Amino acid sequence: MIEIKENIFWVGIKDWEIKTFHGEELSTHRGSTYNSYLIKDEKNVLVDTVWTPFKEEYVARLDAEFGLDNIDAVVVNHSESDHSGSLTHLMSQIPDADIYCTKNGHDMIYRHHHMDWKFNEVKTGDTLKTGKYELVFVEAPMLHWPDSMFTYVKGADLLLSNDAFGQHYATSAMYDDEVDQCELFQEAIKYYANILTPFSSLVKKKIEEFKAMNVPVDMIAPSHGVIWRKDALDIVGKYYEWADAYQEDFVVIAYDTMWNGTKSMAEAIASGLKESRVPYKLFNIAKSDMNDIITQIFRSKGVIVGSPTINRRVLSAVSALIETMKGLRFKNKAGAAFGGYGWSGESVSVIEDGLKSAGIEVAVPGIKFRYNPTSDELEECKQFGKQFAKNLKK
């Protein structure tokens, strides 16, 4: 138990070993944490639990350090298994404790655990007096599940934000001002780009709604990663910026290749961007981490995707990238397609269709060549890069 505010404690788990999240969908190079918080007051309240594999360690430690019988209520800000996975094991030992959650949370907790506990459904503005403190509940649907909510601790100026403002980041430190800032913001923007991008319009509205509540916040404690205490609202400003069709001044070139023909095209296109003074980042999709590429696309002004044609389609790594971009629905980004082929040559049109479906505007018509491109064809690729740069600047 680590005290983060007077009589408010972090009681979570640090998972240094985890390297993928949401099954195998999301890479977590720096591990993660499952942050749970305990409010000791006249009424003792536990806010969120931890992922299922840690349930026995978590509950045993709570019992040893605090005593399970002393827990009066559990707030479930979000029912996903990394937050509520220990709930069945915990509630088997404190079955009379109240559970506070949203209406959607009630349904989703039941669908996860199939138990009828003492549920109390709450909505924005509802409160729970613990004694010195008062909990104020703020619904945050689709940030990032329908049941999501925040819990604001009135009297402590503390926002328990669940997934919002989190990072998959295991560290010996507890707070943002104690860690490497480059690592911290790499993980924070990666988290936003890969999880919250589709809900950006809702992020902006929720931030505006919360600001309108005009409550003081000097600490934000998410459910993953470190706690924000140094200028805590700076990360809220970052989220507002990231939610507003965010972009930085560079282009991503992402490709896969079979016999290096498409690779040579990618490098020639890159030389055209460079001569046009447009910074770029070059990725072989099959040899790079998908979520890291997605993070860079989120940050970029545009993305140029390449693949050879195989079975009238694209290589599987390229297909996976396109499908991921479709789900994330990036805003205000330019795109283009290129590729090699042997006889049919459908890859460029497949990529262009995918970019359009992902909400990315095709800035220049795609380019393709058979087998290994000649020096003249590589020069055309360079000019293709220059034309993309020209259109991007417009």
Rank of each mutant, 00 (worst) to 15 (best):
K190F: 09
E187D: 14
Y192N: 01
E121P: 00
P216T: 11
H112C: 02
L159F: 07
G155L: 12
E139R: 05
A221S: 13
I220K: 10
L128V: 07
Y191C: 13
E183W: 05
K205R: 05
V217W: 03
H112A: 07
C182E: 10
D157N: 15
M219Q: 04
Y133G: 05
M149T: 01
F185Y: 15
F210W: 03
V226I: 13
M219L: 13
L202T: 09
S172Q: 13
F119Y: 15
D116W: 15
K230I: 06
E178N: 12
F199G: 04
P216W: 04
I207G: 01
E178D: 08
D147F: 06
A212K: 12
L233P: 04
I109P: 02
S172G: 14
K206C: 07
W117C: 02
G225K: 05
M142G: 00
Q181K: 10
V215T: 06
L202H: 07
K103E: 00
L135T: 08
H113P: 12
P216L: 06
M142T: 01
T102V: 04
A164F: 13
D163L: 06
E209Q: 04
H144A: 13
G131F: 07
L128I: 09
H168Y: 11
P198F: 15
I235Y: 11
Y169L: 15
K154W: 12
P141D: 03
W117Y: 14
L135R: 11
A232T: 03
V153L: 12
S172F: 04
I109W: 03
A188Y: 04
G105E: 01
A212V: 00
Q181Y: 03
R229S: 14
G125E: 01
S161V: 02
E187Q: 14
Q186P: 02
E187I: 05
R229C: 07
V203K: 03
M174H: 14
K211C: 06
A212G: 06
V226G: 04
A156H: 11
K103I: 00
D107I: 10
W228M: 11
E187P: 05
L158W: 09
T151C: 14
N104P: 00
F119S: 10
L196F: 15
D176W: 02
I207W: 04
N162H: 03
M149N: 04
K118W: 08
D163T: 06
V215C: 10
H144P: 09
N104C: 06
A156Q: 10
K129R: 12
M108L: 14
I220R: 11
Y192D: 01
L184K: 05
C182N: 13
A140Y: 07
V122N: 01
D116Q: 13
M219P: 01
V122H: 00
Q186A: 14
K132W: 01
S200G: 13
Q186K: 15
E209F: 13
Y133T: 11
P146R: 01
N162L: 00
N104K: 11
T151M: 08
V138M: 07
S200W: 03
H168W: 13
I207M: 04
N194G: 13
F119V: 10
I195E: 10
D116T: 14
D157G: 08
M213G: 05
A140L: 06
E178Q: 15
V236M: 10
V215G: 02
G225M: 12
A188V: 13
E134Y: 01
G131M: 10
